[in-house]
Design a binder for these strands. Structure first.
Lengths: 215, 215
DNA sequence: ACCTGAACACCGTTCAAGT
DNA sequence: ACCTGAACACCGTTCAAGT
């Protein structure tokens, strides 16, 4: 029980990755250091390098893990429902792992489960009868909305939790922004929360995409 | 000319911020360290702390600088054109400073120029006759699209420059993703580039927002 | 008021060594 | 094959000191 050598084979690539994700979930991505992860695994820092090439490769793997959590649409069912479900699933995955989005932005090597997700969406769009250019537009616009919405949710979570009224309480000069102040008070009186706009936006985007095929 | 002491008053908050942004633009955000910035300014690292509380405050300032570059819509002109122009301007600012988006995600203290931008958009929406809840929906959906599109552009820039065909060349197993491979080849034959979808998406979103008021 | 110098507690990672 | 230990080149930041 003292600081003896760690027993053999406690480590594995999978344990490194899942504990890495857990550490990021619990303490934030900035706390995910090789050294801290090693301690969590009861092992010396350098032990990790036997299972992972370097920290960058670990981050690549973490992004792929999050993508694996996301629902993959299936060909044959109504495409609009399938894409809506994937979008909702993506949003909730990005909310469970707030570190994932910023990581995605800087990754250069998409993992296999990430590619599989893209493949599934493209398959659905292609068999739904979208032309190549329409596929590009549809996918670009839908993903832009979903990623962008998640990004705003994490920005709002950082500035003050949830409701718009609390943003003001966070101590910005509300005097210089009367419309913002007004919107915040009306919105909270109206029980509006930012997250409510997700379904509205999803419908706007899917409707717009559907209309692409009818031109 | 030797390593004598730096002359007084070479430094200022403004110089720290603008050179900080320039350094991030030129060498990437990961190269923006207090020490590297100090060297660029011809000064010892600790000198910066006399103009900026800490690195976090510097990053807050940098985000505000980028927001200051973005066009602010003005009340009185057609709201749809104004918001379209702001959206295009935001997209190009985020493309000129690829580090800005990831910074925004983690910032907790929006700067005055950032707040001013939000204020301007809200003013336009309010005077255009949107109800409070519609304002929330409209703003959420439009910004989600713009931020999300910019995010995807930076993701694509990291994985391989621009065109979809090059993604495949980047060495992922194309065999497991036939639809993706097919889409990539058709898209490049069709001269489709991801950026082309921006105007398509912008129109879809603005059209959808406009329709909100007619219900 | 503004800048320097030395130091502290951190990083990721290399390299050589143990079992 | 898998893990350790010491070391290197970095970080942001504190604290005391110079002018």
């Amino acid at each position: 029980m003292a600081k003896s050598r760690a027993p053999r084979n406690t480590l594995s690539l999978e344990r490194v990755i899942t504990e890495g994700a857990a550490l990021a979930d619990e303490k934030g991505i900035e706390s995910l250091t090789i050294r801290a992860l090693a301690e969590r695994l009861g092992v010396q820092p350098m032990a990790l390098y036997h299972h992972v090439a370097n920290k960058d490769a670990l981050l690549d793997a973490l992004v792929d893990v999050v993508n694996a959590e996301v629902y993959s649409p299936v060909v044959g069912r109504p495409w609009r429902d399938e894409l809506a479900e994937r979008s909702r699933s993506m949003r909730s995955a990005l909310r469970s792992h707030p570190w994932a989005l910023s990581l995605m932005e800087t990754r250069a090597h998409p993992g296999p489960r990430t590619v599989a997700g893209h493949e599934a969406v493209l398959a659905v769009l292609a068999t739904a009868g979208f032309a190549p250019r329409q596929i590009g537009d549809a996918y670009a616009v839908l993903d832009a909305f979903v990623y962008g919405f998640a990004l705003q949710e994490s920005m709002l979570a950082n500035v003050g939790l949830g409701t718009a009224t609390e943003e003001l309480a966070a101590g910005m000069d509300l005097t210089a922004a009367p419309h913002l102040a007004d919107f915040a008070s009306r919105a909270s009186a109206d029980d509006y929360a930012f997250g409510d706009s997700f379904e509205v936006g999803l419908d706007i985007v899917l409707e717009g995409i559907q209309r692409l095929t009818k031109c």
